[in-house]
Design a binder for these strands. Sequence first.
DNA 1: CTGAAGTTTCAGTAATTTCTGAAAGTTAAG
DNA 2: CTTAACTTTCAGAAATTACTGAAACTTCAG
Lengths: 180, 180
Amino acid sequence: MPLSSELQNLVVHFGEMGSRWGFNRTVGQVLALIVFNESPLCADDIADALKISRGNVSMSIKELASWQLIRTHREMGDRKDYYLANGTIWQLGQQVLAERKKREVDPTMSLLRNQMMSSSNSELSEHAQKQIKEIHDLLELFTHWFDDVQSMKPEHLQALMKLGSGVGRILEIAGKFSRK
Amino acid sequence: MPLSSELQNLVVHFGEMGSRWGFNRTVGQVLALIVFNESPLCADDIADALKISRGNVSMSIKELASWQLIRTHREMGDRKDYYLANGTIWQLGQQVLAERKKREVDPTMSLLRNQMMSSSNSELSEHAQKQIKEIHDLLELFTHWFDDVQSMKPEHLQALMKLGSGVGRILEIAGKFSRK
DNA sequence: CTGAAGTTTCAGTAATTTCTGAAAGTTAAG
DNA sequence: CTTAACTTTCAGAAATTACTGAAACTTCAG
């Protein structure tokens, strides 16, 4: 059966955003379909709803699984795999960020670290060396901060974010506690 | 003249990462070239160093300008445009994040807001409505937090991030100040 | 073991994105 | 105004990425 036009809108939008979020159109659409359906969907439901090939569904599912955004559910007495969102929206968001950091930040961090340690680094201009160090330090700072934040309980993180512009004022207070 | 092999490495890497960071390979390479060169480069320098067409340089420059990552410098008595990084590494980083938020978060926020206000929203399942609200609220929280953080002075933001895992402890103290 | 019900793989094709280079546009000196 | 120096645009070509569908594979009931 076809999607309701309201759901259709969402699915199309997630498809368009897909490539900006690090996957492709179809993967984005499959994700939307799964997230907005409470009951798990099987591969044929998905192929059917999105009018795509069975093979493409398999690829997209594999991709979403590699991002840990979906998980498989099996009914007894039924050989089909059924797919469903792997957690709350908050958890899915965390998962996307973690995966993107891994793909977008980590490789550069590691290249820059190697570059700085390499003896041939001195062949670069002073300016280039300085820029490398600054990018490296920025990414490292981000990485540590990100790891800390990932390990916080969602409600604490949420509360912290809600402080909003208060965060500036708190900084001064915090200073007293962070000094060794 | 060709690039030193060390600089070459960096340029190639920024090219590979380019598409993950929201632009394309060439744009990434041009950015690297400009960031690691202290002296401004003209379009021909770039075409030459990267072995790409003049037209492609023009497109890439335009793209980087739209991200506000580079700016133009003109020598008197010379009609050429020379390009240069538009600020410190920290500023470039902020700029990239701001632009990506605009492209990756804002459109979805706005779609979801409209969806929730639309009278036809009730045609969706309870579950879908709940998920929409959760995504919307998460993005809104993120947006407010992001705006606050963007407005902080770099050194304050840096200090805050450095607190690292201390951020959890501070939360309790902060609680006392955020209550009305 | 057999075969039905399902999933995955992958070679070829389709769609999309990026790049080139020539033509059109712009700017300013003379 | 004319021309040289430079930049931008854009149609078509090239490169890349995504999709299909048929074949191979897996799993399990009988």
